[in-house]
Computed example of a mutant assay.
Amino acid sequence: MKATPDSSFAYDLHDVTCLFRKHFDRRAIRLGLTRAQWRALKAIRRREGLSQSELAEFLEMEPIAVGRVIDRLAASGFVERRADPNDRRRWRLHLTGKAHAVTDDMEVIAADLRHLALADVDEDDFAAFQRVLARLRANLSVIDTPDQSTDS
């Protein structure tokens, strides 16, 4: 596909993402968590046992900021730090039962929001959209990565 110089699909994607966050925030306010906290809980739920530095990388946040978020979540009883059996200096992050209940609520909120967002969107159109997003992700993922096929 030949793109025009004024193509703004990246801005459109950003706008849609911002709208999703705004509407999610409004619905999730009753959970009493900040956006950084619910994003951390969601990431830990997806990758239970990840380290704090892995979480920071995943969330694209500074490690110190993530440390503060985890401190607050641990103090509130949502997250446990467990020693890494292979590295005494590293802690692994795990959700508590309290956090699982909240993340279950977050999933319901997200599912309801997705349902509203996809109203009147044709299934075939959405499937094509997902394929395009997957291709964009793949194309962008290989930019600036060393070519594995060359011998140095």
Rank of each mutant, 00 (worst) to 15 (best):
C18R: 14
C18L: 15
C18N: 12
L19D: 15
L19Q: 14
F20N: 04
F20C: 03
K22T: 05
K22F: 07
H23T: 05
H23M: 10
F24P: 00
F24M: 12
F24I: 10
D25P: 03
D25F: 05
R27L: 12
R27Y: 09
A28Y: 02
A28G: 09
A28N: 02
A28S: 13
I29R: 14
R30S: 15
R30M: 11
L31T: 05
L31A: 14
G32Y: 08
L33Y: 02
L33E: 06
T34W: 07
R35K: 07
A36P: 14
Q37T: 12
Q37M: 08
W38Q: 08
A40K: 00
L41P: 07
K42M: 10
A43D: 01
R46H: 12
R47T: 08
R47M: 08
E48M: 15
G49Y: 07
S51Y: 03
S51Q: 05
S53A: 03
E54S: 11
E54D: 11
E54M: 05
E54I: 00
L55T: 00
E57H: 07
F58C: 06
L59T: 00
L59A: 00
E60D: 08
E60A: 11
M61Q: 13
M61F: 09
E62Y: 05
I64V: 07
A65R: 11
A65N: 10
V66N: 02
V66G: 04
V66D: 01
V66A: 04
G67W: 02
G67S: 01
R68E: 10
V69L: 01
I70G: 08
I70Y: 12
D71A: 04
R72H: 11
R72K: 13
R72F: 11
L73N: 05
A74K: 09
A75M: 06
S76N: 13
S76D: 15
S76H: 14
S76Y: 06
G77E: 08
G77F: 02
V79T: 02
V79F: 07
E80G: 00
E80H: 13
R81I: 02
R82F: 04
A83R: 13
D84C: 10
D84Y: 05
D84I: 03
D84G: 01
P85V: 09
P85L: 10
N86E: 15
D87T: 01
R88D: 12
R88P: 14
R88K: 09
R89C: 01
R89V: 00
R90Y: 01
R90G: 00
R90T: 11
R90H: 02
W91Q: 13
W91F: 07
R92G: 02
R92E: 07
R92H: 14
R92V: 00
R92M: 09
R92N: 10
L93Y: 05
H94A: 07
H94Q: 09
H94D: 01
T96L: 08
K98H: 07
K98I: 01
A99W: 03
A99V: 06
H100F: 11
H100Y: 11
H100P: 04
A101F: 02
A101R: 07
A101K: 09
T103L: 06
T103V: 15
T103A: 13
D104E: 14
D104P: 00
D104W: 04
D105C: 11
E107M: 05
E107P: 00
V108L: 12
V108W: 09
V108P: 00
I109C: 04
A110P: 01
A110D: 05
A111L: 08
D112L: 10
L113A: 06
L113K: 12
H115Y: 15
H115S: 12
A117F: 15
